[in-house]
């Protein structure tokens, strides 16, 4: 059971080897201003439906949720707050025999898959430009469908503890916002939306400004003339080297030259 529990925990990126002192209490990271907020003995940890770690001691610190098995050498798990998507009090005996804290954890898959897709898209684009095949597509579509396994229940023997533990969890979770500042920067406003929001005179001004800017850009970036100028004293300047495979078509070469010149 312990081995399965640890495997499941590692899959969810849970720290299964937090540092403990001789009395099997988690060593707090003073550098990270970690403080113990609550300690509760006789708490059973259950992952998923039935993966029980047996009785243990629950420590709620300002940085982590650390559960340490009561049996010597038993498993211990440390969760960081950003991993905890949500937590709740579960108190309906028809769903689970005893009142407990219910935690849903970040499965991490979502982000990984998103990252993979983005990477794949970029790679495809690059390959398209190069006109080359041979892209090694990493099929990451396995998407382990073990839904619900990212759930952890913390079941105190003393059911009256649940409310207090929940409160401490809320407080500590609020102390640990995600380091990456999300929010304002993530909101992209459609250009049309922004324009629609402006009053007519401002909008006209913005459009006029933009047109002017566009014309400036047009004048400044006259690649053809620049190219002529650069080639003036050395007509062979942008020719292919003899030993290159070449044959890419002159237009492309010209564009490249202009790009470098400007």
């Amino acid at each position: 059971m312990a081995a399965r529990l640890l495997t499941a925990a590692r899959r969810l990126d849970i720290d299964t080897q937090p540092e403990l002192n001789e009395s099997r209490e988690p060593v707090l990271d003073a550098d990270d201003e970690e403080e113990l907020r609550s300690k509760c003995a006789d708490v059973e940890l259950v992952m998923g439906d039935d993966l029980s770690g047996g009785p243990g001691v629950l420590h709620l610190t300002t940085r982590r949720v650390v559960w340490v098995s009561s049996s010597p050498g038993g498993p211990c798990l440390a969760l960081r707050y950003p991993q905890i998507v949500m937590h709740a009090i579960s108190s309906d005996p028809s769903a689970y025999a005893r009142p407990c804290l219910y935690l849903q954890l970040d499965e991490g898959d979502g982000d990984v898959i998103m990252g993979g897709m983005a990477g794949g898209g970029a790679a495809a684009g690059a390959n398209g430009d190069a006109g080359a095949g041979g892209e090694d597509e990493e099929e990451e579509g396995e998407g382990e469908e073990e839904e619900g396994s990212a759930e952890v229940r913390l079941v105190p023997t003393d059911a009256t503890q649940v409310g207090d533990l929940f409160k401490v969890l809320c407080d500590c979770a609020a102390l640990n916002p995600d380091s990456e500042v999300e929010g304002e920067g993530d909101f992209f406003f459609d250009e049309a939306e922004v324009m629609a929001g402006l009053d007519p005179s401002t909008r006209a001004a913005v459009i006029a400004e933009r047109l002017e800017g566009g014309m400036d850009l047009g004048e400044g970036e006259d690649g053809g003339e620049d190219l002529q100028e650069l080639m003036g004293d050395d007509p062979g300047r942008f020719e292919d080297e003899d030993d290159e495979e070449g044959g890419e078509g002159e237009e492309e070469e010209g564009e490249e030259g202009a790009g470098q010149a400007s």
Partner: peptide, 8 residues
Amino acid sequence: SVRNCFIR
């Protein structure tokens, strides 16, 4: 069985 919760 959840009646109240905290969402990150």
